[in-house]
Design a protein around this nucleic acid. Sequence first.
DNA 1: CCTGGGTTTCCTGCTT
DNA 2: CAAGCAGGAAACCCAG
Length: 333
Amino acid sequence: MHEIHSANIASLLLQVCDTTVCCLRDPTLTPVVRIMILEGAGRMSINSSSNLLHQQPSWTDGYSTCNVSSSFYGTQWHEIHPQYWTKFQVWEWLQHLLDTNQLDANCIPFQEFDINGEHLCSMSLQEFTQAAGTAGQLLYSNLQHLKWNGQCGSDMYQSHNVIVKTEQTDPSLMVSWKEDNYLYDSGYGSTVELLDSKTFCRAQISMTTPSHQPPDSSDVKKTQDHTPKSHTKKHNPRGTHLWEFIRDILLNPEKYPGLIKWEDRSEGVFRFLKSEAVAQLWGKKKNNSSMTYEKLSRAMRYYYKREILERVDGRRLVYKFGKNARGWRENEN
DNA sequence: CCTGGGTTTCCTGCTT
DNA sequence: CAAGCAGGAAACCCAG
């Protein structure tokens, strides 16, 4: 594996070319110039077998304040220009868009995006629409923003530029649904209403250009009147929930291979391979060095009652996602 | 300050 | 015997 974490990348680049890093940290540089610098760094890369795509330094310090937890500890997609994303980072970006907009996993066919950042950046709006339907517009718009602004504005990923109209007409039903499905709050500062996957699949998405969006007079504002501050976020005190953390490991096996594996992908059955390592990773995420699998598993067992997990009798270290766990299916319908 | 959600910690007893 | 499971109880943290 060519896993190189951001800290390693920074030190690597410092060794290779201090000036490159310094240049990249210059906030006055435009993304285009940063790309040129990166390309230069790529030409002077350490050895030809190293994968340049894994050696990108931060391309904007602005991202450092962005609390994006969908990719947890490695080089994060938002730290580098989309042009240099790996396939995995493309998927992370897609996942983040799903999370922040509370979209359902089946709204974006990940298999259509088994491509790297370079390929992604070359795609036209039409190609995005072909690949991802109505969600393609969202992807395209967001990518353009990333390509040319590279800002991690608190709302740039989110719904201020998306109108979602559903067929769900009974407000009481919607309220009921929201009460029953509070679980999938990713904690990313999502500003959209929670959407049932089935509801969303019938949804219409229409796009407006963020830069042309009047701040207070649009339908969008009426439909999605949730600035990050005003949004009444469901409780998620410490970022990603444990079950989401577990799910993300399962969905990103290349990131942390050999920790957890699917036993039955379609049924959502999975098994801990390195239980203590997962616990330590979870503890690291929570700044809790004393986390153990025993404690983690207690938290896991609490999910049974909430039907986020189902019991798997007689099998050690085996769990199964329940009906309230979302985002783990390959094709959620 | 209070409350509730989501853990975290500790524990006992049981099973593999 | 160790490791894991089950679940009660209480504490803790944090956002609303």
